[in-house]
Design a protein around this nucleic acid. Structure first.
Lengths: 230, 230
DNA sequence: AAATATATTGTAAAAAGTACAATAATAGTT
DNA sequence: AACTATTATTGTACTTTTTACAATATATTT
């Protein structure tokens, strides 16, 4: 009972993107409203079957662009989910990616079969089709791990940000609280965010200094054997 | 120019396993000698196309068992590689796994189209077919990351081990050196390896105490919010 | 008994992490 | 102009962790 080679070439592969967005009100996830079967008229992760003649990474970017309008944003592969019956139309393996973006900069423009795209607070996610809730939980736990060891949190913030915004972002993602003084002491000691000399304006209180992420300084840290750990 | 649904169900999926084994002479990788096309008569990672009616995790275990004889060993998913032309027979996405085992306990029994299975020192890996060298490099870097934060190193050691063996294992995997006194102080402080009261015998020097990993104690550490970091 | 080989152990100094609250700077109000 | 409301900014003492470093112990072999 040997399989013929052709028996193996009968699977489909999809990509599912977990897009994390941040704004003052907290961390959010981007979902699309499905305008096509299966699971039409349900909110789901922006994901789709991919073509056999496009590289995996390119496919992930293309799927995201088509369904949400987002492009050129930070993406990283997570894991592949491959239970036999996870898709009603046949054997579909799905490769999950996570992406990070500052919500203000995210111009949503859903097309293809995505009727809508909207941000959902991380703790108000509805039941999702397929195994999307499982994928989402995995993505959340991975984001927590990775954001502590790589300078990817800056993808969630505007180019210029205050130390308070930076701290709020880390606190939202990690679901924890930091002491203001200790947080600043540590982050400034690491020396890969630099004071731009600019300040907030039009705020009804003492304006905060604006900082920016300095990738070169971070590289130097790494070259010197330092390991980031927030 | 819309794709028909059937156009998507034309991919194959494979699993490639990076099996790390440890013994006194250092860290090794398990390769098989391919007795089938493509790349017949070359050493490669133990991997194979998988059937569309078996779950992904089960497939990974089955592929490893068939090609090498190994079963019930520690496995964890890494990443999926999906360049268009990575496989000469068509579009094949491969999901990589890494596995850990103590070489002494590994009874190799290659079957199916694997003509041989053998351990290769981690720094003497030949050129491999497909993108297997790339997969291997990714696996090595992931092993280094994961072994520092999870108690998976014990999978590479016998049930009873000496502190020197434990240190050698970590040093081999992490390609670094630890101070003997500081290493012991730290590992004993963590308190999840316990002295069995037994000792080495038949060694031409002071015999070392034998320890074992204590999973319950480790669980307690975690529950108390401790984060392992070697 | 001596030689050989590896196992075992402690301490002081440096670095990093933690807990904690008063002062500063702006816009808006009186 | 003085005052209020609001958030930004900053330092120090204490605790914990990490680091650097070498002499003694216990088994086998000669």
């Amino acid at each position: 009972m040997k399989n013929a080679l052709s028996d193996y070439f009968k699977a489909a592969v999809s990509v599912d993107n977990v897009v994390f967005g941040f704004e003052k009100t907290g961390l959010k996830i981007l979902l699309i409203y499905r305008g096509a079967e299966p699971f039409r008229d349900q909110w789901a992760l922006p994901g789709d079957l991919i073509s056999v003649d496009i590289d995996l990474v390119s496919s992930a970017e293309k799927v995201l662009q088509k369904l949400t309008g987002l492009e050129k944003i930070y993406m990283e592969q997570l894991q592949t989910f491959g239970k036999v019956n996870r898709h009603p139309y046949g054997r579909v393996f799905t490769v999950s990616y996570f992406a990070l973006i500052k919500i203000e900069d995210a111009h949503l423009n859903p097309s293809s079969w995505a009727e809508e795209a909207a941000w959902f607070p991380i703790n108000e996610i509805p039941n999702l089709p397929f195994d999307h809730n499982e994928i989402l939980e995995f993505a959340k736990s991975q984001l927590k791990l990775r954001i502590r060891r790589q300078p990817i949190g800056f993808e969630l913030l505007p180019k210029l940000f205050t130390l308070t915004e930076l701290q709020n972002m880390y606190e939202s993602v990690l679901e924890t609280q930091f002491d203001v003084r200790n947080f600043r002491k540590k982050i400034l000691f690491l020396d890969f965010i630099t004071d731009t000399g600019k300040k907030e304006n039009c705020v009804a209180h003492r304006p905060a200094k604006l900082f920016k992420y300095n990738a070169k300084r971070y590289q130097k840290l790494i070259e010197n054997g330092y390991e980031l750990a927030l």
